[in-house]
């Protein structure tokens, strides 16, 4: 197993003193979808904060708004009202490029469907976020290999395409990709949803290890068994936090 990396928050942008702040902060966040004449409150005034290096599960049944919540934190979606701060940056003040930069530098995404690019090999998939970060080719390859090791993918699979790998292996590639730019936050949307119980358990163990090394991990799930890995659990129902 790989040793923990030195700095857990390499991209934290504390300008002045090392004043502590929550790495994720939501204030009265509402997200309203309009379908015809109906207004759907996917999120209805959600407020909470997540501290650095926490392991959080966001639990809720399907349609509860938990994925919407994750998309807010991941800068993929903006709230209708309320404020989301990631690494102390107010997302509502950012344009498209600004949101992209936050995603690129602060957040690693892990999806239920793995979402690897089918034409690229495992290691190339891991290199993708680093391309957009402007890393040099040599550096990219080196760091991608490191990330794959960290994600426990046997290195003989580095040059395999996604369709030549098992679900568990694909998810490890996806995790390695999420780690590529050393983000302080990992966001996982049902990371074990497409995996069998044993593989799912291994993936969760991996996330736990990464968290122990300092990365803030936020997992969205409907599976109550995931709770045991987490330090903090946020329960959401009908767009509102229930505990």
């Amino acid at each position: 197993m790989q040793k923990a990396k030195s700095s857990p928050h390499p991209k934290s942008n504390t300008g002045s003193a090392r004043k502590s702040y929550p790495i994720v902060q939501l204030q009265d966040v509402k997200r309203i979808y309009t379908l015809g004449n109906n207004k759907i409150y996917a999120l209805n005034g959600v407020s909470f904060s997540i501290e650095k290096s926490d392991f959080v599960t966001i639990m809720g049944s399907s349609g509860s708004g938990k994925s919407t919540l994750l998309n807010m934190i991941g800068c993929l979606d903006l709230p209708t009202s309320g404020k989301v701060r990631v690494n102390n940056v107010d997302l509502s003040k950012l344009d498209d490029d600004g949101l992209t930069a936050i995603r690129r530098n602060n957040i690693g995404f892990i999806f239920q469907q793995f979402n690897l690019i089918p034409t690229l090999t495992a290691i190339e998939n891991v290199e993708i976020p680093m391309i957009f970060n402007g890393a040099s080719a040599d550096n990219r390859r080196k760091k991608a290999l490191e990330a794959l090791k960290k994600a426990d993918l046997p290195l003989e699979f580095a040059d395999h395409k996604p369709n030549e790998m098992s679900g568990g292996q694909q998810q490890r590639v996806a995790i390695a990709r999420a780690l590529a730019n050393d983000p302080p936050i990992l966001l996982a949307d049902e990371p074990t949803g497409n995996l069998d119980t044993k593989t799912g358990h291994n993936i969760m163990e991996l996330l736990k290890e990464l968290n122990a090394a300092g990365t803030t991990v936020i997992v969205v799930t409907h599976d109550p068994k995931m709770e045991e890995y987490a330090h903090t659990t946020i329960r959401i129902q009908d767009g509102e936090i229930i505990i």
């Binding site: 991941g74 993929l76 498209d96 490029d97 992209t100 930069a101 995603r103 690129r104 530098n105 690693g108 995404f109 979402n115 690897l116 690019i117 993708i128 976020p129 391309i131 957009f132 970060n133 990709r177 999420a178 590529a180 730019n181």
Partner: peptide, 15 residues
């Protein structure tokens, strides 16, 4: 979908 993935992992419009 691929474009979505690329954007999620940090591709800007310019990229």
């Amino acid at each position: 979908k691929e474009i979505g993935i690329m954007k999620a992992v940090g591709a800007s419009r310019k990229d």
